[in-house]
């Protein structure tokens, strides 16, 4: 599903060049729930943004479901983000002026699928347990609830790949566990591929595999297979 080959990304600030990714390589199968771990500054978020078509790579190749992300033009990447990718961010990134329902509806509007919008929104709100808070604005919700709305917004598009950047970074342990349960449920029932960035090794242990990064490279190329035996998976 996701194939990353010799991926490099350089940032230039004046004369200073920062090598964020240095020949990263790994693969994630379709339907897998993978986590990317590593210290701050190792290039995790850069990787996620390249996977999501938000950032251009300096070198290398990334394909997602056969789509070559690294050689695609701006318009193609916009379509790719719209139709194949769902993002979940650490800071939730909900639109504060819109209520829960409208935050999900705008994702459907952008997608251009108007048929069955209400049913789809109700369905994902039920999955994240927020169907009773559909009229509330993001700032009226707890942080855990806001993140669940963000997950619902990503899911309502029915993307092939869910990319989550530190989705539990702003949450307490109870909410983090709830979010992980949601991801696991999505992975098991919808078969969507999930790539989650996290600092929390305990949470990473609950995923199908861990890709450990250091200094812009995967520590163990190809990722580390994890035995599926955690409490979250059983749940």
């Amino acid at each position: 599903m996701i194939v990353v080959k010799n991926l490099e990304k350089d940032y230039k600030t004046g004369r200073v060049v920062v090598h964020a990714l240095r020949g990263l390589e790994f693969e994630v199968d379709g339907g897998q729930f993978a986590s990317v771990v590593g210290p701050s500054g190792c290039g995790k978020s850069t990787l996620l943004y390249i996977l999501g078509g938000m950032l251009k790579a300096s070198k290398g190749k990334v394909t997602v479901g056969g789509f070559d992300v690294t050689s695609a033009g701006e318009a193609e990447l916009t379509t790719y983000r719209r139709e194949q990718i769902g993002f979940v961010f650490q800071k939730f990134n909900l639109i504060s002026s819109l209520n829960v329902y409208d935050n999900l509806k705008i994702a459907c509007d952008i997608l251009g699928r108007t048929n069955g919008t209400d049913d789809r929104i109700n369905s994902v709100l039920e999955i994240v347990g927020l169907e009773h808070k559909r009229k509330m604005k993001p700032l009226e919700l707890s942080q855990g609830e806001q993140q669940r709305v963000a997950i619902a917004r990503a899911l309502v598009k029915q993307p092939k790949v869910l990319l989550a950047d530190e989705p539990t970074g702003n949450l307490d342990s109870q909410n983090s566990e709830n979010i992980m349960r949601s991801f696991r449920q999505i992975s098991n029932t919808n078969g969507q591929t999930i790539v989650m960035i996290t600092h929390n090794r305990a949470l990473a242990a609950a995923t199908d595999r861990i890709i450990e990064m250091k200094d812009g490279r995967a520590v163990a190329p190809g990722g580390i297979e994890i035995a599926a035996a955690s409490i979250e998976r059983e749940a």
Partner: peptide, 14 residues
């Protein structure tokens, strides 16, 4: 600005 980033991450066209 952040909202525009959100819209772009959702795949909103120009």
């Amino acid at each position: 600005t952040r909202e525009i980033g959100i819209l772009k991450s959702l795949g909103a066209s120009k």
